[in-house]
Design a protein around this nucleic acid. Structure first.
Lengths: 138, 138
DNA sequence: AACGAAATTTATACACATTATTAAATTATA
DNA sequence: TATAATTTAATAATGTGTATAAATTTCGTT
């Protein structure tokens, strides 16, 4: 598990001042395995921080995404959620229960895309949808 | 190029009654290479159809997506767009100019995802982002 | 420690894509 | 032609995310 000090270091290295709010939000997203939305982050940290604005959460998450520290998922078309898992992986969303899950993925997949000469790729997301094992059984 | 009669046939085969509006919307999305939004479809067909409601466009596109006739893209987090191209391909969105482009892709990519036993996959989208060749030059 | 500039956070209001609702129009069927 | 079912349309509502501007905090400098 990553320590708060290491997370702080990581923000500084990215040129981001580690305010109390930013560090708390960064820690929450990095340690969550649930792909939280801004709203979820807000609800989770409101008490801990005493006061917190939803605007701050939105702004901070955007800041982290732009800095490449976390990634934004648009696999569900009705909201954005965020992912602090730095390993390459694909995402699956169940059309029945709505759960979003991580899937391991071999690195070479991007070499299967053709015609990328001249492009600069900064983000790649593979989204799969269908039925998860639990929902398929029923 | 696909004929209107063939498109009509395709709707009927999918159990969808081919109303004037539906056929026009289906034809437009299938023949477009531009990944139109609901708004764009609406603007394009308003004149041709005399009258058309934006609600109808939204409902109809959803109907087509649910029937598997077209696909919905969420590569841009601020709007949905639609894709009538039935071949497997990836999408790229330029962070600078916003353009969304098709990229050819080899079929085997889904075999690079691990741990899919028990899942039923109905949709797969690969989204790449970065700079397109034109914007990279500048 | 105190000051002041710059960065950050907050509250409020706003924008806008999509959906809900419900009534009107069209189409199928008897 | 009458009736029922489906489809379309107009309007209002929802809700996620953003813009704005004021308040607070941070941090280097004296």
């Amino acid at each position: 598990m990553v320590s708060r000090a290491e997370l702080k270091e990581e923000l500084i290295n990215a040129g981001i001042r580690p305010s109390v709010q930013r560090l708390a939000i960064f820690e929450y997203v990095r340690k969550s395995c649930q792909h939280p939305t801004a709203e979820v982050v807000y609800e989770a940290l409101c008490d801990e921080l005493g006061s917190l604005s939803l605007t701050t959460v939105y702004n901070t998450l955007k800041l982290f995404v732009d800095a490449g520290l976390i990634s934004m998922l648009t696999i569900d078309d009705t909201f954005r959620c965020f992912d602090g898992n730095r390993c390459d992986h694909a995402h699956f969303r169940c059309n029945n229960c709505g759960k979003i899950m991580d899937l391991q993925m071999k690195k070479e997949f991007i070499s299967l895309v053709e015609g990328l000469d001249g492009y600069e790729i900064t983000d790649a997301q593979l989204y799969l949808k269908g039925l998860c094992p639990d929902c398929k059984k029923k």
